[in-house]
Amino acid sequence: MEITDSKKNNWLVLNIEGRLDTVTAPDFDKYIATVDNSEVNIALEMSALSYLSSAGLRCLLKLSKALSAKNGSLVLASPTEMVQEVLEESGLDSLLDVVDSVDDLK
């Protein structure tokens, strides 16, 4: 899994490539721990994320709650079909904000 970052308006956009599963979930958490505390609005650009499992869902849930506690938010952008299915089947698609593209970020 690779993560690169960029800024769009007041959003920190994290482009995730590869898989977010039981193997890479700790790496995701480690990366998030390095993000500046002042970044409270984070968008995960997921068009290159080919696979998401419950381990990855836990990362997303944890991050979303952490940002929410700072009055910020987590948005998931451009999920692939597989990722969208996993979000829907877990019910997290109704709890997390999902947009078609980072261009939709306000």
């Binding site: 499992s53 836990r58 849930l61 709650k65 019910g91 709890l95 997390l96």
Partner: peptide, 17 residues
Amino acid sequence: NTQNAKSLDDALPGGLG
């Protein structure tokens, strides 16, 4: 209970798999 969670606060990280 995540599928039944009404809000983020209710959603637990366990039991998702």
